[in-house]
């Protein structure tokens, strides 16, 4: 549908591959950019395409982070012993152990988070509109608090991830590309999903869920799968992010509801929710703006982001893509009957 997407593929791919070599100083910042793209894309599966505004998707980022941490640690050490020592005992992981742990940890994070989403969705999808938003927000906040009391995974003190067996630059490079691939995989998945009957079904749920039910659509099944798919990619991003920071802690790192959790929503709205490219453009713009204000207007960065969100929500609700689609509908394959509009 979105006719310019092939034109954006190549520049983004070139930028993505070249960035860590051309501007190595900001490799991690750009890695985070890809995580942001993944955040916005996964948020939009429900928020934009299905009309379910979740404020708690960060839950699956955190669950993925904890699942990978536990898998990575537990494969070659006792988790309770590991966390209890708080890094005092030096658990040495061989290269093979580290990479096996990481690989399995990332996969387990994706699958575990998807299963969690299915389980939570089974109850949460009884809620509609603002109640769903508040309900999901509550669950994400609760998850952070609960993890903070669970000493097996380090409770509020957190848990140090196994140390990367190589140079700091090597670590940045590897995780940069893992984040980049995760974002690409998410994009390809969404692009494919929206082209199938599944895409139509979740759009139908967005436009009129009661009608969709009355037409016999398996609404709960579609909603659960959509959320699980989003959670799968979010879980993977959490696993990668936990390994990048090297330290998992419940409130600031794993379940940052008020920052990453809100950024996902803000980025999708900025770019234009309910479109494939809107969340991507929104994430890129948002991330650059955020890095810019953090660097040059430190102290005012939250004010700047707040202003951006307010302007976006009050004056520019359709977002960048929505605005473009209104302005140039024929470029997006949308047919407008001018005669009809006048009737």
């Amino acid at each position: 549908m979105e006719s310019f997407s092939p034109k954006l593929h190549l520049p983004i791919l070139i930028f993505g591959v070249a960035a860590p070599f051309v501007i190595p100083g900001v490799t991690i910042q750009i890695a985070v950019l890809w995580v942001m793209v993944l955040f916005a894309l996964t948020w939009d599966i429900l928020g934009g395409q299905m009309g379910y505004n979740s404020l708690g998707n960060i839950l699956f980022f955190g669950s993925g982070m904890y699942i990978s941490a536990v898998v990575q640690v537990s494969m070659f050490a006792d988790v309770a012993e590991y966390t209890a020592s708080s890094g005092a005992v030096d658990f040495k992981y061989t290269d093979a152990q580290y990479f096996w742990g990481l690989g399995l940890g990332v996969i387990a994070a994706g699958i575990g988070s998807a299963v969690l989403a299915a389980a939570i969705g089974w109850t949460m999808f009884g809620l509609r509109g603002p109640y769903f938003a508040i309900g999901t927000l509550g669950i994400a906040l609760t998850a952070g608090e609960l993890m903070g009391t669970w000493s097996w995974v380090g409770a509020g003190g957190g848990l140090a991830m196994p140390v990367f067996p190589g140079s700091a630059d090597g670590k940045s490079m590897m995780f940069y590309f893992l984040c980049f691939f995760a974002a690409i995989a998410t994009y390809l998945f969404c692009s494919w999903l929206y082209s199938t009957r599944f895409g139509l079904a979740i759009n139908a749920i967005r436009d009129d869920e009661q009608k969709a039910e009355a037409m016999g659509i398996h609404t709960l099944r579609y909603k659960t799968i959509a959320w699980s798919a989003a959670a799968f990619f979010l879980g993977i991003s959490g696993a990668l992010f936990g390994n990048i920071t090297g330290f998992v802690e419940p409130l600031e790192v794993a379940f940052p509801v008020a920052t990453f959790g809100i950024f996902m929503v803000a980025m999708s709205l900025l770019g234009g929710k309910g479109t494939l490219w809107g969340p991507i453009l929104g994430a890129i713009l948002f991330h650059f703006l955020k890095e810019f204000t953090w660097t040059y207007f430190l102290g005012w960065q939250w004010v700047a982001l707040g202003v951006l969100i307010i302007v976006n929500v009050v004056f520019f609700q359709q977002g960048i893509m929505g605005w473009l689609m209104d302005k140039f509908p024929e470029r997006f394959g949308i047919v407008v009957d001018k005669k009809e509009a006048a009737e």
């Binding site: 999903l193 009957r197 599944f198 139509l200 079904a201 759009n203 009129d208 398996h218 309910g274």
Partner: peptide, 28 residues
């Protein structure tokens, strides 16, 4: 489904009684 075009409205209105898991991911 007011944000979708007429064809898409029709395509998602197929009978769902025999749709299995894999049918959800088929072409529109």
């Amino acid at each position: 489904y007011s944000n979708m075009n007429c064809i898409d409205n029709m395509l998602i209105s197929i009978p769902h009684r025999k749709l299995g898991f894999r049918d959800m991911f088929k072409n529109r």
